[in-house]
Write a protein that binds this DNA or RNA. Sequence first.
RNA 1: UGCCGACUAGCUCAACUGGCAGAGCACCUGCCUCUGGAGCAGGGGGUUUCAGGUUCGAUUCCUGAGUCGGCAGCCA
Length: 570
Amino acid sequence: MTEPTQVTSETPSQSLDFIRKIITQDIASNKHAGRVETRFPPEPNGYLHIGHAKSINLNFGVAQEYQGVCHLRFDDTNPEKEEQEYIDAIEKDVRWLGFDWGQHLYHASDYYDQFHQYAIELINKGLAYVCHLSPEDTRGYRGTLTKPGQNSPYRDRSPEENLAWFEKMRCGEVKEGECVLRAKIDMSHPNINMRDPALYRIKHAVHPRTGDKWCIYPLYDFAHCISDAIENITHSLCTLEFEDHRPLYVWVLDNITIACRPRQIEFARLELSYTVLSKRKLLQLVNENIINGWDDPRMPTISGLRRRGYTPEAIRNFCNHIGVNKTNSVIEIGTLEFYLREDLNLRAQRVMAVLHPLKVVIENYPEEQVEEFDAENNPEDTSAGTRKIPFTRTVYIEQTDFQEDPPTGYFRLAPGREVRLKHAYYITCRQVIKDKTTGEVIELHCSYDPESRGGGTPDKRRVKGTLQWVSIAHAVTAEVRLYDHLFATADPNAVPEGKDFKTNLNPDSLVTLTNCKLEPSLKNLESGARFQFMRHGYFCVDPDSTPDYPVFNRTTTLRDTWAKIQKKQK
RNA sequence: UGCCGACUAGCUCAACUGGCAGAGCACCUGCCUCUGGAGCAGGGGGUUUCAGGUUCGAUUCCUGAGUCGGCAGCCA
């Protein structure tokens, strides 16, 4: 491999991550003629999640920055686990994240003929052999982490014999598990991956793309490096667990007739607190119906985040912020939520929604009168304009915005107290109506000050509380799904002996409210539309919505400074 | 007990390849307001895992130790 030459860059960019440093050096030394070509190589055996977003952002991002290209390649070498549904979902998710592979859509299965030829080349060179050891015996012969392995009794078969057996494997004359094609490297190698790894195994399975053409399928270590080389990949970025496989990656390419030598570089996979990012575990949550499918808004999948109301920009900003290195680390979920709020704050229209309605009658307001107030759509973005909001004698406010016996420091509504109804009038609580049997507050009678129209009074008196409200006559009834972290503990994998990660599931990760009252503008909305429900958080329209019955998902709450104040007072 | 890798603020990352350790988030404080669950500004916080060594000078280089992570699929 070419050593990077010392080059003084004219534009010392501020702090490149270690991968971009390598690429910058490679370009400077004219390795690969200055070309940059990366690839995102998912196996279609599940949905993409936020951890994949990190890899997608890296691979496509690097390609963009260096005027290169990034391929989308399905690493489809295990037909038993792979499905068309996953292939479709992956393409959709990568596009949604904002990346485009152009003409560069590939499948490892496109290269099956070439893999086969390269396997024959290795056999002819005496570098691969067909081994009839059972899986159990193979394990025994491999040795352990501390003990070297032993040569397979089939290791010294002649190329002719190997060729014959390999052909029998290929044309379906051998049963699954009976034999395997192995590389002939070194059974005492300190790196276990080099102890004659399997290259091909027999699987009488139908492949989503190649159908029943093949009954032998290459393993990752054989297929991946060759796929990279066939596609002329320059930098093959993968996660840390493949570090030990790099010598094998190099060995395969060094021993077959192929010109391209991509450089494999490993980086740390993403881990997030309060969630799991293992495909196996996510599959388990889906299969056991613990959540409602891959796109359940509590899932860390791209489709789950999308349904939850995340924006591609927020996810990309997050990925750019966390950077890339070789340190195993757990990112706080709050960091992801920070980038979400940062983005949503600028683009989400503010609307009024009452989640737990409490009826308020404004006694001195004319019975039949309807007034319309102009409401600012987004104080962060004046170009977002205004809308009209109808006001009448009876409105809903939030149950939590009234306390009969308020503690000190409570600035919302209470008997005799005055508050402002956002965009409308000041009201004062005159009477509290309770359910005779339960004692529950069911209605408030208030008076309004006509002078306070629009939210201020000539005497400039200060009103501390401002509440959102909805006119009862105009209210839209909706379902609102309040989502919280899927797991109750920061590290879901930390469990007592004999328990599994599901022990840590958050029982309150979904709370469904069915009698929410929304302002009338929130009707006939497009699925996915995002809003800020004032003083509550960010919400988006769920695909389950119908024109008559909107369903909203809580994407995230607002920054919770009030909770901190309350905590401090205790 | 083998091989590989990583340790810098509570968290995530920087530090121009040896020159006074910085940033975002979090936290704290203040300001402002028709979101007292919005917004804005400022501040505190480090024996750079430890012990030696080289050097005028070490987060950076060397040696050793510790801790954590990965590897014994015919998964990727």
